[in-house]
Design a protein around this nucleic acid. Sequence first.
DNA 1: TAGATTGTTAATCGATTAACAATC
DNA 2: TAGATTGTTAATCGATTAACAATC
Lengths: 208, 208
Amino acid sequence: MENGCISPAVAARLPRYHRYLSALLENSATRVSSNELSSMMGVTASQIRQDLATFGAFGQQGYGYGVEYLHGEISKILGVDKPHRLVIIGAGNIGRAIACHGLKKLGFDVKALFDTDKKLIGTKICGTPVYAVASLSGYLKALGADIAVIAVPAAAAKSAAELVFSLGVRAVWNFTNVDIDAPEGGLVENVHLTDSIMTLALRLNLLR
Amino acid sequence: MENGCISPAVAARLPRYHRYLSALLENSATRVSSNELSSMMGVTASQIRQDLATFGAFGQQGYGYGVEYLHGEISKILGVDKPHRLVIIGAGNIGRAIACHGLKKLGFDVKALFDTDKKLIGTKICGTPVYAVASLSGYLKALGADIAVIAVPAAAAKSAAELVFSLGVRAVWNFTNVDIDAPEGGLVENVHLTDSIMTLALRLNLLR
DNA sequence: TAGATTGTTAATCGATTAACAATC
DNA sequence: TAGATTGTTAATCGATTAACAATC
């Protein structure tokens, strides 16, 4: 790893390691070898060791990895050892689903939703208040938030992202089927639902 | 391409080409070159031509690609020229969001939701009826459906997937944070929301 | 025809797998 | 100590980019 640059392939796999280690932890496993993880996860043991080597040396020859220790280290690498603050822009079906998804358990604290619909403003969704988009600027200044979820109609996506980036949010979790450009120092992570189902359709089509 | 085997990287990109061609079509563009697409999409022109070459030759030297023709060919490759029938297992927040997401415009016709909650059974969500999970078998036999959306609690995910696969569904669109094994001849496409936000957290963490 | 742009081949780059010495 | 398993280096594989002849 060199100042902020890691292989995208590794970045995409790390949460999955974290997930399996959480499960091992729940089952009170104390140690795990790359070979055991390999057969659990369906990836090669070599890849697991290679991936982890990106960040350091967490195991012990002849023993394997301490489950709790490795889980903790990966949590630190992922940055989920400290809580994140989220705001959700758009209180439609997707915004509501995210607000109700129980992300707090994973360290992602949903602080508020923002919408333009007067009927929704002032209500709560799964315990999270809905505010007017007009009050976003003041809210973000007061409370801060590092991640904004973009769950607005496609036509409003780019301007919503520009707005939150301009207000100091550093990362956008984009649920629209629009590609959003990240500004210098900003990040965009996409959940392109329509692309996902089309990929499934494609694979189905190729499967004779 | 050789009997059903294409590069996963290409499979993941093809829906995005389709999306940009749809936009061009709406803007009444008649032709587009790989160079124009390249600067629109932020991928190399070389990659676009290489990707398309997986499936055939759709352009013309000195001219580029006919937008409508290429869009149509990619639609055929994706299998979205004919409608797909979906059922959604689980009428919670995610299931509702998918039911209300307007997938029909893209050729994905959501026929029904299935849930175990008596309060929901018999109601409609965005025009789509909610049935009892117990009636799934009869329903699928009568109407068929090629894709099932798994939007149940994580603990129920694997058994839900096994059930729909055993009833003849060939593809599962999985929204739980559980990894589902595809049976012989079956497919699983994952939307791992928790992995996605963790990847975002990781990238944020690496960004100094 | 001349200019433009494809389809395709070859070169480069990155990611995965295999192998093994180091060592707990 | 002997066996097990890591961390790491080298080999392989696949994906991306560059280059260019073919041709509209």
